[in-house]
Simulated scan of single mutants.
Amino acid sequence: MIEQVIDARRHSLGGFDVGRVLPFRKRRMVGPFAFFDHMGPVDFPAGVSRDVDVRPHPHIGLSTLTYLFDGEIMHRDSVGSVQAVRPGEVNWMTAGRGITHSERFERARREGGHQDGIQVWVALPEEFEECEPSFAHVPADGLPHFGDGGVAGQLIAGEAFGLRSEVPVYSPLFYIHWTVPAGARVEMPTGVAERAVYVASGQVEAGGQALQAGQMAVFNPGTAPAIRAVEDAVLIALGGEPVGPRFIDWNFVSSRKERIEQAKADWRAGRMKLPDADSDEFIPLPGDPEAQANPMS
């Protein structure tokens, strides 16, 4: 029933580490989900260095979804958005033909505090890869809540269990935050080709196999195993219909390799507009001379 278990690998963003699950050498995507980072958990002291910030950088061909369990991130982008995301909310940014943005831990620098959350990249179907860039913020009351028996669920994006999130997705998918007390069970949604569950904290059992915090289980097509919490657990369930293979290079996703090369050339030449509210610095293209001393690239 479980096709594959993927362990999060520690990846440095310069100021702090994330747990990177997707892409993985033996599993590039789950449905349209091409990237999955667990940001934290980390405790920032007040006055933490600005090195923890992610300075302005570009994307094409994808939507980013930022969702927090704890903390706050300030988002600024090249379509004029300035929007903090807090626990239970969604920042959904569609890059399309090209967008730039920054993600800064401004509250943590002022006050310190706990930071924990997930960021995913959702590949756009080919007909939307070159769409106009856009940004949407969806507050917690725009995300359906469900559950019983002590289980609390929040449908972050897509459709599941007859519910629909307000996040404006471009292809069939679901993305769920579950809090599951020890001994309780949850069932994965059906109706899409590819599905997986990530254990953000705690321990669960699925299909007779134990899953620890920091592990993602990818299920065989057509199977719907119950997931039982061995101890109190926080889960992210995700799935959807495949959109076809994608090339991923740095922050660029595309069905065409030559499109990524064009995006790299555009960024190198300064042809991609920086955020109006955050245009004093940027992350150079990795491999360029000015990027060699830049730990964020």
Rank of each mutant, 00 (worst) to 15 (best):
M1K: 11
I2K: 04
I6L: 15
A8R: 02
S12K: 06
G14E: 06
F16L: 13
R20Y: 10
V21K: 03
L22K: 05
R27C: 15
F33Y: 12
D37V: 10
A46P: 15
V48I: 15
D51V: 15
L62K: 01
T66H: 05
D70W: 07
E72C: 12
R76Y: 00
W92R: 00
T94Q: 01
I99E: 00
R107K: 14
R107C: 07
G112P: 06
Q119E: 14
P125M: 11
P125T: 11
E126G: 08
E127T: 13
F128T: 02
E132S: 12
S134K: 04
V138Y: 01
P139H: 11
F146V: 09
G149F: 10
Q154N: 10
G158M: 05
E166G: 05
P168V: 11
V169R: 00
Y170K: 10
P172Y: 07
I176H: 06
H177W: 08
W178P: 01
G183H: 04
A184M: 12
E187A: 14
P189K: 04
S201M: 04
S201N: 10
Q203A: 14
Q215Y: 08
M216E: 09
V218I: 14
V218P: 02
N220G: 14
G222L: 09
P225Q: 11
A226D: 15
R228F: 05
I236Y: 08
A237P: 02
G240Y: 03
E241N: 08
G244M: 08
W250D: 04
E258N: 08
R259T: 07
Q262L: 13
A263H: 00
K264T: 01
K264R: 11
D266C: 02
R271K: 14
K273F: 02
K273E: 12
L274M: 14
L274Y: 03
P275W: 02
P275F: 01
P275I: 04
D276E: 09
A277W: 00
L285S: 03
L285M: 10
G287H: 07
D288G: 04
A291M: 04
A291V: 08
N294Q: 13
P295W: 09
M296L: 13
